[in-house]
Design a protein around this nucleic acid. Structure first.
Lengths: 150, 150
DNA sequence: TATTGTTATACTCTATAACTATA
DNA sequence: TATAGTTATAGAGTATAACAATA
């Protein structure tokens, strides 16, 4: 070990910290999940739109892979989104088997509203924290992000 | 505002931090969710057992309220768990309409294994972090917990 | 032949409504 | 009558299998 004896948190941490961190993260995630704008859209539908917003237009198949659902499931998701005018299909440039799906302006509005709503709740609560606590969360966010990626 | 001008993180934080924190927490939560022991049990079934473990025996109705599902849904969940020998029903002491559900030894084993599995993944990754990072996460866990409760 | 996407069909989870037993 | 719980039934979301169109 490469750290001193006067750091009880570090020495005993991994196991105990894993417990408390897991509980805290899962609880906050569930709380955030509850802050949804449009109850008429499922999480998969919203996630598909968010992915299109983040990564740009792509085919139904790519979208299915991204969202980890099977292609037929994505077919149904897209049918609903298309009917509501949130996404539209364009022909693929060279392969006529494929379609390219992209967000419409209305779809992008929904994605943004969704994001604003979820963040509004969190941002409101962050305003009640001490500056030092905000600094801690700022650092923690980067570490959590790295953990999620690993 | 009650804090100094030389703390850019704090002054600009709530909105920007809300964004990065939300993304980090949600991603890690999804990653943790994937670490399930027994794919044959649904999240609701596992959650019901975890609740029984945490809060002790209770009636189907109380359990339904706890898990925020309707009583008929809990009836089905309990039927599966009972069939597998993970929970058992006892008569209520005074009210013969009610039942009291409690975890069996086998059910408790499943809950513990589940918890171990999820934490093993996280604990493993925490071992690769610097002591200072662990301290940050330790502090952050408490703050996140408070946020989730609010 | 292989690949992309859709249609047909079934399963799981959850809900509401109607029913039974007990208070 | 009111309450706890179950049974009957329906709807949403997702899966696999079979099919159509194109490469």
């Amino acid at each position: 070990m490469r750290y001193a004896n006067d750091m009880p948190v570090s020495t005993s941490a991994p196991s105990a910290l894993a417990t408390s961190l897991r509980i805290a993260v899962m609880r906050l995630a569930r709380r955030l999940q509850r802050e949804r704008t449009d109850d008429s859209l499922s999480t998969t539908q919203l996630a598909a739109m968010a992915t299109l917003d983040r990564h740009g237009p792509m085919s139904p198949g790519e979208l299915a892979t991204h969202e980890r659902v099977q292609p037929p499931s994505m077919t149904r998701v897209l049918a609903v989104l298309e009917e509501r005018g949130y996404v539209e299909r364009m022909p693929h440039a060279t392969d006529r088997r494929q379609a390219v799906v992209r967000l419409t302006r209305a779809g992008r509005e929904v994605v943004l509203a969704e994001r604003r709503r979820r963040e509004a709740w969190l941002a409101q609560r962050l305003r009640h924290l001490e500056p030092a606590e905000l600094e801690t969360l700022q650092s923690a966010a980067e570490i959590l992000e790295r953990l999620a990626r690993s």
